[in-house]
Design a protein around this nucleic acid. Structure first.
Lengths: 146, 146
DNA sequence: TTGCACCTTCCCACAATGGGAAGGTCAATA
DNA sequence: TATTGACCTTCCCATTGTGGGAAGGTGCAA
C-alpha cells in the first residue's frame, strides 16, 4: 500500500513516516518500480507501535529502544520495565510541578477581580522579587532532567 | 552592572537576556562606552518578572503580553485574568492527559515481571492494534491546542 | 489529453535554550 | 609594563518533533 494509506491506518502522518525512516528509527520501506514506498501489514503494525509509544510520551530515542526490545525474542522484560519506570518517574515529577503551578495560578486567578480596574494580584505576584511559592526551581530541574 | 551580574540577580542566563532583547521581548539595554550592556535595578526587576512568568509555564508570547499589561497603568485586570485563566485551563488539560498516561504506565509496570523472561505486558500493550485505553488521542489534541 | 490526486526529495520554520568560536576589554598581578 | 584570566561582544549551530510548501515525477479516470 502507499504511504498515505499506511499513514491513515497507523495514525502516523506520511511526513513523519518519512522522517522516522530518515533518522533510522524504522527500516527503509521497500520501493516499487516508480520509486513509491510500499507498506504491508507488518510495517503498519510497527508504525502503530511507534505511535502508541509516542502517545505515552516516550521520546523517539526511547521508542527506538522499545522497538529493538519488541523485535528481540531473547529480550529480558527487566529492561523494558526499567525503561517504563524511568519514564513514569519523569512524568510523575512533571505532573507534580505542573500541579504546583496550577494551584498557584488558581489562587491568583481567584484573587484577581478581573474587571476594569488595574489592580491585579496576578501581576503583583509575578513581580514579587521573593517568590512566595517554591515551584520555579523544581520546574526547571525537571526540564533539565528530561 | 554587567550582564552576568544581572543574570545572577534575576535568574535569567546572560544568553537568554541577549536573546530576549534580540526578539524584542525586552527593551535594548543601555550600552557603556566599551559596548557592554549596562543594567540597573529596574531592568533586573523586569527580568525577574520574565523569569517568574516563564516559570509558571507561560510562553514568551504570553510573557510579552503580561509585560505590556504590567507596565500599563491603565490596564484592566480583566485582561490579565483572562490570560491566566486560559493558561490555567491548558495546564489542567495537560495534567489530566499526563495522569492518564501515568495510570496506564503504572498498571503496565505493575503487570510486568521485570525479570530475565521476554514476556512483557508493556510491549504487548504498546503493540495492541486496538488501544485498550483511550488516552492517545486526547494527548495529541492537547499538544495541538498548545 | 487533460486534470487531479498521489508520490518523491529538499529546504524552511517553530519554541526556547545551550554550546562554542573569534575577537575585544578590563583589572589585577608578576 | 606585560601578561593573564575573567569578562564582554556577535554569529552560527544543535536540539526535539512536527508541519508547510516548492519543484518535479507518476497513476488513473474521464
Amino acid at each position: 500500500m502507499n504511504i498515505s494509506m499506511a499513514a491513515e491506518q497507523s495514525g502516523v502522518s506520511a511526513k513523519m513516516i518519512r522522517y522516522y525512516e530518515s533518522i533510522g528509527l524504522i527500516e527503509a520501506a521497500d520501493r516499487r518500480d516508480n520509486g513509491y514506498r510500499d507498506y504491508g501489514d507488518t510495517e503498519v503494525a510497527m508504525l502503530q507501535f511507534v505511535r502508541r509509544t509516542r502517545d505515552m510520551g516516550f521520546s523517539l530515542e526511547e521508542v527506538a529502544s522499545l522497538l529493538t526490545l519488541w523485535r528481540n525474542r531473547r529480550r529480558s522484560s527487566r529492561e523494558v520495565r526499567r525503561l517504563a519506570e524511568k519514564h513514569l518517574a519523569n512524568i510523575d515529577a512533571r505532573i507534580a510541578d505542573m500541579r504546583a503551578v496550577s494551584r498557584t495560578l488558581k489562587r491568583l486567578v481567584h484573587a484577581c477581580h478581573g474587571d476594569d480596574r488595574p489592580e491585579c494580584p496576578i501581576l503583583d505576584d509575578l513581580a514579587a522579587s521573593k517568590p512566595k511559592i517554591e515551584v520555579a526551581r523544581r520546574t526547571k530541574r525537571t526540564k533539565t532532567v528530561k
